[in-house]
Amino acid sequence: METQFRYVTPVPPHAATGRVAQVYAQLADDFGMARMAVFLTLSPAPDVLAATWAMLRESLLAGKASRTGKEVVALGVSLANRCPFCVAAHTTLLHATGDHRLAETVAAGGTPDDPEHAAMLAWATSRRGGAQIGPEHIGTALAFHFVNRMASALLTENLLPANLQKSRLVRSVGGRVMARTVRRRLLSGASLPLVADLPAGPEPAWGAGTSVGAAYAALRAAGIAGGELLGDAARAAVADTVAAWDGEHPPMGGAWLDAPLAEVPAGERAGARLALLAALAPYRVTDADVAAWRGSRPDEDLVRLCAYGAASAMERMETFITASALTGDGS
């Protein structure tokens, strides 16, 4: 049977309990879908699931800024990160905002007619600062630097069976079906109780005092905690490599991994390699990469290790995209 899930068996909604059930319920209410593959694949690690949902909800779904503009950011980041699953999803969600021409223009690599949308797209795809943006836009971009990596590593590219998402008609119809939910204005902060008891560091300066900033602090902490699955040498190799990363895609092939892994003990290399792939080239994660590290480890560990790589890259991207951004109220 065809499935979107590469390596993880999700917790099904009917069997979910505790934090997972609470996230699923809010997903159904606020996103209009009880089953979303990206969140289902995170469900073996409830804290990662809840923090990811909080980050996406508080940045993309809630707040004052235009949903259309934030969907342009989400789609632009997904295009830059080469995540076909998320590109298809957010093309459909742009259709749901009512701007069908904009959705297909961006998905096809074109430039929006509206100057503000064009500036948002240029900022999102450039991986650098330079636009007049607010916390909701920064949060949306960072949310998808995380989500894209998790989707690319753990899901197939098929948003719909038989790749039906490649049809413009299907995307348009899907958008119309979701239009009422997407065009609702949600109150900020409703997801924060789901992560209130989780560890979190300081809120970022760009989002201090906002629900987006609180959600980002929770996601960063939940993701980076996955580094505990690695030995000290492997964790240091990942941290040092990501800290030196220029934000661009690594060269084709695997030679770029040779230097970072050279000083890592042989028994730790598979984990370091998988975390680095999740951080810098998640679309290149293979069955062999997962099998070499995983052994008998549970789904939860795989989600957490990939989240460590994804969160490390998200933190690094934060330094780039906020470097020259002028933050405002996001409206």
Rank of each mutant, 00 (worst) to 15 (best):
H137A: 13
C86K: 02
G110C: 15
Q22I: 07
T241A: 15
R6E: 09
A50N: 04
V77R: 03
A270P: 07
P44Y: 11
L277W: 05
D240T: 14
L274E: 06
A279F: 08
T41P: 00
G109T: 13
E315R: 13
A307Y: 01
A217P: 08
G129V: 04
A237F: 06
Y283E: 14
P265T: 11
N163G: 14
R184D: 08
N163L: 10
A236R: 15
A281D: 12
H137Y: 10
E318T: 15
V195S: 08
A124M: 07
R235K: 11
G134E: 04
A80I: 05
A310D: 01
V106L: 10
V87N: 00
S296R: 13
G69Q: 08
S191R: 06
M314N: 00
Y7S: 05
A278G: 09
M33D: 14
R128K: 12
A80T: 05
V147A: 12
A34E: 15
A124E: 06
P44K: 09
V173I: 15
T140F: 02
A16Y: 10
R35V: 15
E318V: 01
G330Y: 02
G213L: 04
S126D: 01
W245V: 06
E2N: 13
W206C: 11
G189T: 07
T125D: 02
E318D: 14
N81P: 00
M55Y: 01
K70E: 04
P204S: 07
L261I: 07
E263P: 03
A74T: 02
S152M: 06
G32I: 10
T92K: 13
A325P: 00
A292I: 06
S152P: 01
A205Q: 14
L230R: 07
F320C: 00
Q26N: 10
P282C: 03
G227A: 11
A34N: 12
A103F: 10
L121A: 01
D258E: 15
A50E: 05
P282V: 01
K64C: 03
N158R: 15
L61C: 04
T241V: 12
R183F: 09
P250W: 05
H117W: 12
E136V: 00
D240W: 04
D287W: 01
A50S: 04
E268T: 10
A65S: 15
A292C: 12
T105F: 10
D47Y: 02
L49K: 03
A107C: 14
E203W: 13
G231W: 08
A65G: 15
V285H: 02
M36E: 13
L56M: 11
G109K: 14
L154D: 00
A196W: 05
S152L: 06
T156P: 01
A34M: 13
P251Y: 05
D29L: 15
A119W: 09
